[in-house]
Amino acid sequence: MPKSTRKRSSGRARSTARGAIETITRPNQSWPVKLLLTVWRWRWELYVLAAIAYIVIAHGSAITGYFQSNPLWLNALLIVVLCGWIVTDNPARRFAMNRIWCVTTRHRLRACLIEMRVLNYSGNLPFILGCFATKTGQVVWLWMRPGQSVEDLDNKAESLASACWASKATIARSKRNAAIVRIDIDRRDPLAKTIDSPLLEDTSGVPEAAVADDAVMAFLTPDNTDSVPDEFTTERPAKTGTGETRTRTSKTKTTAAVNDSQTVILGANGEDVSDYV
């Protein structure tokens, strides 16, 4: 094979291989910046480890001596009471569960942003300002870096909800600052359970037919015309040319009953205007 042919073919192969490789640049950060970001990201885990280390070092011997001095049944009772206090609903348990879910949501959200390639050209992810507990789940605040906006998260709400093990995710931008993005992670629906209203007890004994009737329309359009006063249907007698007196009926008819169950309202020309009332 000629030498020139080999060069052209190898050049095409290199261009094809280069097009199949995704290049992602990483920001050139110093070690102090990386250390601070790592501490910020894992701050709650570091708090827990520091608390456990302090308890073991400072009070480990006292706790061990206390359990050794007590009988076995008392130690078992203390453990059962402690486990029951952790399981039951109390402020300390709610705080701990909220913190655990907030930390989990923050880590899962960051992993999802990496997999979805929500990066700028420098390779920076949106900065997670904080994650806070709500009545339906958690809310995460993001600070979009230069080159990023809320448009980078369009049509990605389902991916975020799946990554955070939630039922729904809602993405919204701040009205004052476009760089601040709010992500609501909904894990539960507070209205899913049946709500007992005291107002339902007042209508429990009323028949369904009475509840289905429209009381307002029944008052405005009575079924019979006997209850309508005479001044609304007739006018005072008028004299004719021959001296006879006849009663002149008004052109406007108020109501007309049909089948004794449906009320129809007629206009001046006899047109049915029930749908417009």
Rank of each mutant, 00 (worst) to 15 (best):
Arg110Leu: 13
Arg8Tyr: 04
Arg14Asn: 10
Thr64Gln: 05
Val216Leu: 11
Ala51Phe: 02
Asn98Gln: 15
Ala51Asp: 06
Arg182Met: 14
Met116Asp: 13
Ala163Cys: 12
Asn124Thr: 08
Ala157Tyr: 03
Val48Pro: 00
Asp223Pro: 00
Val206Leu: 11
Ile100Gln: 08
Asn269Met: 04
Gly60Asp: 08
Trp101Leu: 10
Val211Trp: 11
Ser122Tyr: 11
Asn98Ala: 09
Glu45Cys: 01
Thr242Arg: 04
Gln148Leu: 15
Phe219Lys: 09
Ile128Val: 15
Ala76Gly: 03
Ala257Ile: 08
Thr221His: 05
Trp165Ser: 13
Lys175His: 04
Tyr121Ser: 14
Val264Glu: 07
Val39Asn: 01
Leu113Met: 14
Leu46Asp: 07
Arg236Glu: 14
Ala20Ile: 05
Leu37Thr: 08
Thr233Glu: 12
Ile63Glu: 07
Ala96Arg: 05
Val211Ile: 15
Ala218Glu: 14
Ala58Cys: 03
Ala13Gly: 13
Leu220Val: 06
Val103Ser: 05
Ala92His: 07
Leu191Ile: 05
Phe67Asn: 11
Phe127Val: 10
Arg99Thr: 15
Ser227Tyr: 10
Glu271Pro: 03
Asp230His: 05
Asp214Leu: 00
Leu37Ser: 11
Ser69Gly: 03
Thr16Phe: 13
Met144Tyr: 02
His107Glu: 14
Val39Tyr: 02
Val118Leu: 01
Trp40Cys: 00
Val81Gly: 00
Lys7Cys: 02
Glu201Ile: 09
Gln29Asp: 14
Ile183Ala: 00
Tyr121Met: 07
Ser167Ile: 05
Thr242His: 06
Ile55Asn: 05
Ala76Met: 09
Ala157Val: 02
Pro207Gln: 06
Leu82Met: 06
Pro146Thr: 11
Trp141Lys: 13
Thr221Tyr: 03
Val87Asp: 04
Ile195Met: 01
Leu200Ser: 13
Lys168His: 08
Cys102Ile: 06
Arg26Ser: 09
Arg99Cys: 06
Pro2Asp: 15
Thr25Phe: 07
Lys168Gly: 00
Ile55Gln: 09
Tyr276Thr: 06
Gly84Gln: 05
Asp226Tyr: 09
Thr221Trp: 02
Asn177Leu: 06
Arg248Trp: 08
Lys156Asn: 05
Ile265Lys: 04
